[in-house]
Design a protein around this nucleic acid. Structure first.
Lengths: 347, 347
DNA sequence: GCCATGAATGATAGCGCTAACTAAGGCGCA
DNA sequence: TGCGCCTTAGTTAGCGCTATCATTCATGGC
């Protein structure tokens, strides 16, 4: 359509090209670029016109060098976040672009000792201004302190408050797990079992706690629980035990969608159909939930919005602005085909 | 353990700190940093020792400014790549780190017109030195030319050769689809149907072509084909038609795992069990394949290694080295529980 | 009318690194 | 012994911006 061709004399236009064209000094152009108030409307208009005429955009790297900042923010994640990574990156990217930053991603292993060193190496090497840490990496003990020592502003996503981060975007996973319990009890379930996540991980602890506390409030006792490690195999192993109980549970809550997939596998093998006589609930709201048969009732975490909020806070932190308390959107129970009221004879 | 504390006098050590400590000029330090040969072993050793004593690492942004390059490479992907994104990023990150580059990710929408503009805006804004483009974005008509005009080195991952990119890392998806056909025929299937991907997308065209050509070679005619769009809903819709055929197909090949999940859903609804009398095959080797019940026979694409190779080539391109022809690892047929020989009466 | 006041703009020194260009030795060879 | 040559190391001018001064110019109170 319109020829956006820059008047490129062999190189990108620089701030002095703009200054020449507008007939001012580069200092004044710089003021306009930085929204400094001491510029007359007239001059400002002339400069802005020159900027768009030349299709000029300031060099991030020159600005970075002069300002002593990189205008880069990092995301630290783990392959456990694979299913939500794209969503998170989009959220971070939207807000970062709006504010003139770029986003660097780093996938870190989760081995106890190596992780902190790995993250620190990443921070030092890339010279980012700020960092967003996703769970479960955010829950690593000692990481906030290590990052603090490294002088990098950090915002974490987490299921519980953690001291040491510049800010924590909370997702109330315990509450959401409680909502699952309420929902199952409301359907009429009494024999409810749970496959928990690894109790070394904060999110897993929270999901278990929230679920059990809500059952208590409903005066229903947890029939049985088995600890998994969020993997498919552990979901299968847990289900094999739970589905050998007699009488069978009428509902199983798995602490993530992947283990729930394992439960569905074992149920299918044993010809126990879902949702009746067995209801199954997952957690995460990942895209696998709807692919499974039957589609899984699960809890969706609004990672896109959380990421956006986290980025907003992070950049405020980097730029020394005050941090308003952000309230992230709540988690949402997504009811699909894997849950139903228990059959009458078994309730 | 060991205190890695830098002798930080309030700021990161710079090249002149190193020069002072080693008793040489910064020019000589710079030569060491850039592996220039004209430095005596003695001096080099002294400088290297000073570097590690100060825990100095050169500022990427200063180097970027001086060299006129950013040492940043970008990955352009799309939410369709969500399931492999983490793998790709790891692969790219490994090689990029090794060579002193950082990785910026950008998720781009796939609307026909908007995509090219979106990618160009990203390239201009971030000032990356090079770009890796994943399918299906890599297949957008006109994109290679637009990127060429933008002067950014680009390597694409693709199922077919595409003119205009600096280099293309090929995954022979047609061949892999052919291997699926061979495998099904070898099992004894004769009534085989396919759910294709959208025939506007290169990968979808290739998968269809490879599958049908291999069936031809085996002298088996494709019973029926329905075009989907790689979504779950389209998989369901296609399966509803295919499973209304009479006699039923004994095998269905879906062009991606997600549509295959849709086929499993419909099969389950209609109480047609898998793998007998109905075998189902997917494509992608995504982590959903193993979560499904039964676990899906599928084709794994070695994205991690492809990404690593792509990055290697890209950086060679950026640095003006010659490009050796890279042979990416082949795709792999993963045989799981969703396929089996057809029941004798139906073969 | 004169100087304090303040707004608008300019000159210029870095930010930390790279890369011409220069300069200083050490050596072989006539 | 003197000369050019090669190797090694230093000097210094940018890269494109920001930000600290300094400067100019209009204004207004006395």
């Amino acid at each position: 359509m319109n020829s956006n061709a820059s008047f490129n004399n062999g190189h990108e236009p620089t701030i002095s090209d703009v200054a020449d064209r507008a007939g001012v000094s580069i200092r004044t152009v710089s003021r306009v670029l930085n929204n400094s108030p001491r510029v007359s409307d007239d001059t400002r208009a002339r400069i802005e016109q020159a900027i768009s005429a030349l299709n000029f955009r300031p060099s991030l790297r020159a600005r970075a060098l002069a300002k002593g900042r990189s205008f880069l923010i990092g995301i630290v994640h783990n392959d456990r976040n694979a299913l939500v990574l794209d969503t998170v990156q989009r959220g971070v990217g939207r807000e970062a672009t709006r504010r003139g930053y770029e986003v660097i991603c780093h996938s870190t292993p989760l081995e106890e000792e190596g992780a902190i060193e790995d993250v620190l190496a990443f921070v030092r090497r890339s010279r980012i201004d700020g960092l967003i840490v996703l769970p479960p990496v955010s829950g690593i003990i000692g990481l906030p302190q290590a990052l603090q020592a490294e002088q990098v502003a950090t915002v974490a996503l987490s299921a519980v408050p953690i001291a040491g981060y510049g800010s924590v975007i909370l997702s109330r996973e315990g509450d959401a797990a409680g909502a699952v319990a309420d929902y199952l009890v409301a359907l009429g379930h009494q024999r409810i079992a749970m496959v928990t996540g690894p109790q070394t991980m904060i999110s897993a602890i929270e999901r278990r706690r929230g679920f059990i506390e809500a059952l208590d409030r409903n005066e229903v006792a947890l029939l049985h629980e088995i600890e998994g490690d969020y993997s498919l195999a552990s979901g299968v192993a847990a289900a094999e035990q739970l589905l050998s109980l007699s009488p069978l549970p009428t509902a199983i809550f798995a602490a993530n969608d992947i283990m729930a997939a394992g439960v569905l596998k074992v149920a299918s093998e044993r010809r126990i159909s879902v949702p009746r006589p067995l209801s199954v609930v997952g957690f995460d709201g990942s895209l696998v939930a709807e692919l499974l048969t039957p589609a899984l009732t699960t809890v969706a975490r609004p990672f896109g919005e959380m990421a956006e909020i986290a980025t907003h806070q992070l950049i405020d932190l980097v730029e020394g602005k005050s941090l308003p308390n952000a309230t992230p959107p709540p988690l949402r129970l997504i009811i699909a085909q894997s849950t139903e009221a228990p059959t009458s004879e078994s309730s």
